[in-house]
């Protein structure tokens, strides 16, 4: 175990991790504590604006995102787990850096200085390059025998302005394989889950989700592993197939692999129960 004092990171949970995806939030915090990081929730954060604000007005979308930037303490990176929140925050920061007029508006609006050096990272960035196995109790590859398909949804795609931001093709496979799991290849890893259309147009999202779940079943996997709360929700609530398959959060599986026993409240929140699978693999009691 790492005995060094933990490093503080600012953390933007966003509305999903605060409510529908609490299990993602809890397992992320548990994981980061184990590897020596302390996620400090951004004080009084607000919704990033999600898909709705920029559909209706760009200024509104920018203001909702920039208020969060103005709350971030100087000198430590701001970490997000929701790919959509991350994009909104990175996009707002990029435009503030580029545009003097917008920066003036920001400072007038929030009365707080703009930090052009603020680093806005996905939590993948912290995991990349860490040898997670060294944090596992007895260095045991606990995920031996777990077959999975990685599901990134649209989190690997950036708008052209942000193409210089890092992307993480293959990161989930690399890390989970280092802990003993077996990644399977399948054609739906980067297929969009349908996001908010799930509410107004379930008739579009259901066939999309069914194709993804059927694809996973055809690949012969035990489960789907995702890092996105929106993807997780859609895969759970919009599948109309009789035989479905559990979808686990990347952070849940990593925490289990490192020997976490705080998972009682995580898996009971899943609509498709992953507990029989996890028991059969010896990951939970």
């Amino acid at each position: 175990m790492n005995r060094k004092a933990s490093i503080d990171l600012s953390f933007f949970p966003g509305c999903s991790l605060d409510t529908t995806a609490t299990e993602n939030n809890l397992s992320l915090n548990s994981l980061f504590n184990r590897i020596g990081y302390n996620l400090v929730e951004l004080d009084d954060w607000n919704c990033c604006g999600s898909s709705s604000a920029h559909s209706i007005n760009s200024e509104l979308a920018s203001d909702l995102a920039t208020r969060n930037l103005s709350l971030a303490p100087k000198g430590r990176p701001l970490v997000a787990a929701c790919p959509s929140c991350l994009l909104r925050l990175q996009d707002a920061h990029f435009h503030l850096k580029k545009n003097d007029e917008e920066r003036l508006r920001y400072e007038e609006r929030w009365g707080r200085p703009f930090d052009p050096e603020l680093k806005i990272l996905h939590f993948f960035e912290i995991l990349d390059g860490i040898d997670l196995l060294s944090f596992a109790k007895d260095r045991t590859k606990r995920l031996d025998g777990l077959r999975f398909v990685p599901y990134y949804g649209c989190m690997l795609a950036h708008p052209p302005d942000l193409t210089r931001e890092k992307e993480y093709h293959g990161l989930m496979e690399k890390i989970l394989a280092s802990l003993g799991a077996t990644p399977l290849s399948w054609p739906h890893a980067s297929q969009c889950c349908g996001t908010f259309l799930s509410v107004a147009r379930p008739d579009i999202v259901t066939p999309l989700v069914d194709r993804i779940i059927q694809g996973a079943r055809d690949a012969g996997t035990d489960c789907i592993i995702t890092a996105c709360a929106m993807c997780h929700l859609n895969l759970e609530v919009r599948c109309s197939l009789k035989k479905t398959i559990p979808t686990l959060y990347f952070t849940e599986v990593l925490s289990l692999a490192l020997g976490s026993d705080e998972h009682k409240t995580w898996f009971s929140r899943h609509l498709v129960d992953p507990k029989p699978l996890l028991r059969s693999k010896g990951l939970i009691q």
């Binding site: 509305c15 607000n46 898909s51 709705s52 209706i56 509104l60 909702l64 107004a200």
Partner: peptide, 24 residues
Amino acid sequence: AEPDILNFHRDVLHTIKRHGRTHK
């Protein structure tokens, strides 16, 4: 063309305006 989708966006913004966060 898709009034339901626009209405959904407006409903989301309505809760953000009220609470600062979405309330699903």
